[in-house]
Computed example of a mutant assay.
Amino acid sequence: MTKSVNLLDLKIKSKYQLNELLSKGQGNEFILTTFVNPFSYNVLLAKPELVGKMDVILSDGSLHKTLHNLFNPNKVDRTSFDFSSLAGDVFSNAEENNSKVVLIGAKPGLVDIAKSNFKEMYPSLNIVLTHHGYFKDEAEQEAIIKLADSCDPDIVIVGMGTPHQEYFLVKYSQIASNYCQLYTCGGFIEQSAIKADYYHPLIKKLGLRWLQRAVMHSHVRQRLIKDYPRFVIKYIAAHLRNRLISKAPKK
Rank of each mutant, 00 (worst) to 15 (best):
R78D: 04
E95K: 08
V101E: 03
R78K: 14
T66H: 06
F81V: 03
T66G: 00
G88F: 07
G105S: 01
T79L: 14
H68Q: 14
F81E: 05
N93T: 10
A106Q: 01
N72G: 00
V90K: 11
S99F: 07
T66M: 14
A94K: 02
V90A: 11
K65Q: 13
V90L: 11
S92M: 12
N98I: 05
S92G: 10
K107H: 09
L103S: 02
K107G: 00
K100M: 07
A87T: 10
D89Y: 09
L67F: 11
S80H: 00
H68R: 14
G88Y: 07
K107V: 06
D89Q: 12
R78N: 09
F71H: 02
F71E: 05
F81K: 04
L67P: 00
L103M: 14
S80F: 01
E95Y: 10
E95V: 05
R78F: 01
T79H: 10
G88L: 11
G88Q: 14
T66V: 06
N93R: 13
L63W: 02
V102G: 01
A94F: 05
D82G: 07
V76E: 08
S92Q: 12
K65C: 10
N69Y: 08
K100Q: 09
G88V: 05
S62G: 06
N72I: 07
L86N: 04
P108M: 07
H64S: 01
R78P: 00
E96D: 13
I104P: 02
D89F: 09
F91Q: 05
V76H: 05
L86R: 04
S92V: 04
D89T: 11
G105N: 03
N98E: 14
F83W: 12
V102E: 02
E96F: 13
A94T: 02
N74S: 11
T66C: 02
V90I: 15
F83H: 13
V102H: 00
A87S: 14
N97P: 00
L103P: 01
N74I: 06
L70H: 06
D77I: 09
A87F: 08
D77Y: 08
D82R: 03
K65P: 00
F91L: 12
K107R: 12
F83M: 10
S85C: 14
D77K: 11
H68N: 14
I104A: 04
S84P: 00
S92F: 09
S99K: 15
A106E: 01
D77F: 10
H68V: 06
A87K: 07
L63I: 15
F83C: 03
F71A: 02
F83D: 03
R78M: 06
N69M: 08
K100T: 05
K107D: 09
V76G: 07
D89H: 07
F91K: 06
F81Q: 03
E95N: 11
F91S: 02
